[in-house]
Design a protein around this nucleic acid. Sequence first.
DNA 1: TTGTAAGCGTTATCAC
DNA 2: GTGATAACGCTTACAA
Lengths: 361, 361
Amino acid sequence: MGEMEAAGPTNESFERLTVERKGRAKPATMRDVGARAGVSAMTVSRVLHKDPRVLPLTRDRVLEAVDKLGYRRNELARSLRVGGGSGMVGLVVTNLANPFYSQLALGVESELAKDNLKLVLGNTGEDVDRERHLVSDFASRRVDGLLVVPAGNRQTHLSASTLKSLPVVLCARPPIDISVDCVVLDDVGGARNATRWLIDSGHRRIGFLGPPAQWTSAERLRGFHEAMADADLYVNEKWVRCTQRDVASAEAAATEVLSMSEAPTALFCANSRNTIGAYRVRRKLSRDVSLAGFDDFEFADTIEGPLAIVSYDTEELGRRAARMLIDRMGEADKTTAPRRVVLPTTLCNFDHSKQSAAEVP
Amino acid sequence: MGEMEAAGPTNESFERLTVERKGRAKPATMRDVGARAGVSAMTVSRVLHKDPRVLPLTRDRVLEAVDKLGYRRNELARSLRVGGGSGMVGLVVTNLANPFYSQLALGVESELAKDNLKLVLGNTGEDVDRERHLVSDFASRRVDGLLVVPAGNRQTHLSASTLKSLPVVLCARPPIDISVDCVVLDDVGGARNATRWLIDSGHRRIGFLGPPAQWTSAERLRGFHEAMADADLYVNEKWVRCTQRDVASAEAAATEVLSMSEAPTALFCANSRNTIGAYRVRRKLSRDVSLAGFDDFEFADTIEGPLAIVSYDTEELGRRAARMLIDRMGEADKTTAPRRVVLPTTLCNFDHSKQSAAEVP
DNA sequence: TTGTAAGCGTTATCAC
DNA sequence: GTGATAACGCTTACAA
């Protein structure tokens, strides 16, 4: 067995002390309630648990004291004594400002609510250090499970061995080098279908616009290449741009690509920002370019000209992930093989406001 | 003093028992770590608190045991013993799917992160019962403070007397019949400015489209009326429609209003859904109608024809609310007069892609 | 029907 | 330097 050098604490939550708060009038305890009602704390506990053995008269006195004092049971103390979790689930997302993640969070919240679980939410801004901090902090708070949209390629802090018996489900991006549950979109299939739609529309020269360095955009690029290869079509690398993070840079890239001497006649855009940028350029240049894009957005159905959108149910993604996590939490043996769910996408054709939808296999 | 009838528990959190979870291998405790390192739990605690008095040799043995066992301090137990809050803040919003609230949440999260506070998030779907449940639950979890977008007009469950010493800040909607802190937008001013822009553009017959029964939409209607009255303009009540919850119904309302024999020449829309609906109708009917709308949205600057948008910084709203709450949490005396912050809006004129912005006072 | 004692995991206090 | 003890607020087990 390899000796392990004495390492510093892997557990950063020890580093920072809780910020000092001014002394606040402390909430009433069961003993306070009992004192007021002339009974012991135990009897108060029984009343709150609706124990039928308590005398109705005592019960009423206790309830009145509860009411007068505005007493609330301390859930922290309760779950410490009882064990078995805090009733909270942690969700770590990369960017709440992105509707994708807020809809995901909504789906998660609604599914958790069914089991009376509460959501602790953290935003990483794609910062892996912040992700590590949040995961560690949530684990220290004894959340019952963890949902994470992993920010980077280093995921060891999310592995089963690091998190011990704390169940994790990755959302929207799959595990890398670790084996945990995940729920992802069919990025490849969606991109393939959208590209095929362009091909079926008669296009041969098709370009690709996408954001940089995300797992999903790589998958979508792969789907694009697959569809092109399936149709024996050549992909000019000059038509492939993968550095656009926002609408402005997408516009710039689209302008460049469409201004080339041998320009593509259609573009596949790997996310909504690139689709919007490409649309603006098409509109400005009055060029006859077909567009297909990943991610639905408001106004997609108002756009003039050939357009197809790969859409999906983000809330459902959140619900499925939460459900999968809850299932895991209910299992005695958490070491069974990791599960993976791939959610289908839908291709919507918005050409000239005459819209039709086709399910993707 | 009036006798109070023996009431049932006002505290609904007693009602439901935590869902039973299968026994999970319990995380290591300080005693476990101590046992492995040949010291007491106390020494482990000291090491994790970086107490300089511990012998370096012992310290290393402890840290190694921590590492080997994957030990994490139980924050629940810690905050129980130490007192002074859980390090969490509760945020209750009405609809996370609405970008307004997700951006709000993002602002809150980022401000809380500065003080190493964690966010517990609940969604009400405008359901007051759910709001009550969430507030009660969060209070039982001993959150250090509460941020709420109140769903209804009954807010007694948010009053200082109900929540005892737990600080609350209302977001986006003001307190009604209770006195607590709040951060709101200048809805009246924004609507007044937008309407005035239409008037200054030469319009005399101006209609109003808005969603139903929200405090904000009432305020925006008020601003609209104020601007019209200021200019001695008559508001035809047939041009005022306040029941549109989505783009589809907004389209229907806009169609009706614009098809009247004496139709308005301009519309003020109280939210983005109504603006989008009105825009679609203007486009479809090829009518020469000026639009002004509350709420910025993607694509606003791509729209052709006269359009002005009242925009604002939603994240800033969240940050300000969180900061106000944190300030309150730090005060020994929480009974000082409630504070109210009104955030300004900005009017952006997107007429013909030649855009200019004017600060609203 | 109600109360007492012990302990969940951590830390403040005092003893060694 | 380190350990024993008690206590945070609550609940399980047992005694009355």
